[in-house]
């Protein structure tokens, strides 16, 4: 008798637990779907994450400084000499490019098109390797006037992605090479307009009719008054049974090693 009573009480408690769990789950899902719960949680988690990432970067810099202290003086001098030589060679190579670039700007300005962008520098807090989504988290947000859709450059001229989410002190950048991401590009000497699809890890694919002349090494650009480099064609796959060919190319820069980027602020004042 007592055993029956206990069994019945246990059964009632189980039913109550399941009912509460069901209503809590429905409540949480409703908040997510109808009350921008995703946005609220994303902002909260992002807010906490920024402080942690900045602490991690600071600790990394301290550790790097400490390692340099204990390295032998000779190895530091050798590395310094090599880096200076590399820099000198690169500066020579850039002279021609800078002259042509300025001439290009002058010509465009003479035709009434101002092409200088207002950019703001940002540090990368979290890189694409940290998730499957191939996104970057940068350390500027609403505080610097960043808005959704702003373009993100590396080394001033290589566009790598666009801002898709902006928080108070950070932003999320989706790389053009993110899986499934579609980007309009120009390929080859004839600047053929087509769409590139991201394959993650800085890789892209394009499908073009087989008879279009594209060669390995052809440049891939983003369209615009100031064409920006995306990458260079690395591999072309042609099958006799397929009327299209598969063109693979990759970013000129390894996004996992990017530490600083520039955000292009479209026709806005830089707030800070």
């Amino acid at each position: 008798m007592a055993g029956d009573r206990f069994a019945s009480m246990r059964k009632q408690r189980n039913i109550q637990k399941r009912t509460i769990t069901f209503f809590v789950t429905v409540g949480l899902v409703s908040i997510f779907l109808f009350a921008d719960g995703y946005g609220f949680l994303s902002r909260s988690v992002g807010f906490m994450a920024v402080s942690l990432w900045k602490t991690q970067n600071y600790a990394g810099n301290l550790w790097g400084g400490f390692r340099n202290l204990v390295r032998s003086k000779k190895s530091l001098v050798d590395e310094n000499t090599k880096l200076k030589e590399d820099l000198r060679v690169l500066s020579m190579k850039l002279l021609d490019r800078n002259l042509l670039f300025e001439e290009n700007l002058d010509l465009k300005e003479a035709m009434g098109r101002s092409v200088l962008d207002r950019t703001v520098l940002a540090s990368v807090l979290a890189g694409p390797g940290q998730s499957l989504y191939d996104t970057l988290i940068i350390d500027i947000g609403e505080d610097f006037g960043v808005e959704i859709g702003d373009e993100v450059l590396y080394a001033g001229n290589i566009m790598i992605g666009k801002v898709t989410e902006v928080l108070k002190r950070s932003s999320k950048v989706v790389l053009f090479s993110s899986p499934g991401e579609l980007t309009d590009v120009l390929v080859g000497d004839e600047k053929i307009t087509t769409t590139a699809k991201g394959r993650a890890g800085g890789n892209y694919e394009i499908r073009l009719p087989r008879d279009i002349a594209i060669a390995e090494g052809d440049v891939v650009l983003l369209p615009g008054i100031m064409p920006r480099i995306v990458g260079y064609v690395e591999y072309i796959d042609v099958k006799t049974s397929d009327p299209f060919k598969l063109i693979l190319f990759r970013d000129v820069v390894d996004s996992r090693q990017v530490r600083e980027v520039e955000v292009v602020l479209r026709d806005k004042e830089i707030k800070k």
Partner: peptide, 12 residues
């Protein structure tokens, strides 16, 4: 947490 931190784009 991973989805909230890094989610976005056309993945999946």
């Amino acid at each position: 947490i991973l989805d909230l931190l890094y989610g976005g784009g056309a993945f999946f």
